[in-house]
């Protein structure tokens, strides 16, 4: 394990733990609470209060504890990031492996498909998938839906990567010998070429994880993220922007949380790259 991998992985794990445990760590009714405020509780005596011993990172425009909201928001944002990465990796790996191994018409079709996805206005897609009946669809939590949207629009980059890796392997002696013993090409792709391409694809995948945290924040900025008043990092950054001239903590801390997460994911990617390069 290289140090970037260790540091990045450590941060990711801590953030994950804090987010998963947020309902117990940051709550007014839990006995394990470190932060004794729920993310939706108003403290009407402390409106837009600067960081203090009561509210460690200050409060927002209606007197909600910022740290509590950041921890609960992390739940949403990390769920979004992980969903997006999973969707992008799955789509890219399956389609990329098939395209790379089979080539020909299938390959051309998939390549044009990535063009369509690239050229499709993300904003329209996001509204179509997030705007409809917002918050009422019980089948999928909103964070997962945001993740789906981001995943669907970010797989093509990874697809090109997997495809070229698989092509490289498909031309190798290894694949030639497999074909010589009569293995069908699709099975070859799935069983042999995909694993070979998957390991180097981990690096760009970590970039997608990082990018989707940023994308969630961006969608929140455009009012297309999580339903308020539920916190997400995107919503919190948006709130911070409105008060940038009167409450610095509202701008600074959400930015720092997103920054730390994205940096951690990148360090994991960088660490993996070095690990593999050895």
């Amino acid at each position: 394990m290289t140090p970037p991998l260790r540091i990045g992985g450590g941060i990711v794990l801590v953030l994950l733990a804090l987010s998963v445990l947020a309902p117990w760590v940051a709550s007014s009714s839990s006995s394990f609470a470190i932060v004794p405020f729920g993310p939706l509780e108003l403290d009407q005596e402390q409106i837009l209060a600067a960081p203090s011993t009561t509210h460690w990172l200050g409060t927002d425009q209606v007197g909600r504890d910022l740290l509590s909201r950041l921890l609960h928001g992390g739940r949403q944002s990390l769920a979004t990031g992980l969903t997006a990465t999973l969707v992008a990796v799955l789509l890219a790996a399956l389609l990329g492996a098939a395209a790379g191994a089979r080539g020909g018409l299938l390959d051309t079709a998939f390549c044009r498909m990535t063009d369509v996805v690239y050229a499709f206005p993300v904003l329209v897609g996001a509204i179509a998938m997030l705007g409809q009946g917002s918050g009422e669809d019980p089948s999928l939590p909103p964070s997962v839906r945001v993740g789906l949207v981001i995943g669907i629009f970010s797989w093509p980059v990874l697809f090109r990567f997997v495809r070229s890796e698989v092509r490289r392997w498909a031309r190798s002696e290894f694949a030639a010998s497999a074909r010589a013993v009569g293995a069908p090409s699709l099975r070859l792709a799935l069983l042999h070429l995909l694993p070979a391409a998957a390991i180097p694809a981990l690096v760009p995948a970590s970039f997608i994880a990082a990018g989707s945290i940023l994308a969630e924040a961006g969608l929140g900025f455009l009012g297309l993220g999580m339903q308020p008043p539920e916190p997400s990092w995107g919503n919190l950054i948006l709130d911070g922007m409105k008060t940038v001239d009167t409450a610095w903590w509202m701008t600074l801390f959400p930015g720092l949380f997103v920054f730390a997460t994205v940096l951690a994911f990148q360090l994991v990617g960088e660490g993996l790259r070095r690990h593999l390069a050895r």
């Binding site: 108003l42 209606v62 917002s134 918050g135 009422e136 339903q227 308020p228 008043p229």
Partner: peptide
């Protein structure tokens, strides 16, 4: 958000849909 918190005090539950 403020209305939600005010009405909660008299036992009325408000869900906000934006």
């Amino acid at each position: 958000t403020l209305i939600q918190s005010e009405l909660a005090k008299i036992g009325v539950e408000v869900k906000i849909e934006a």
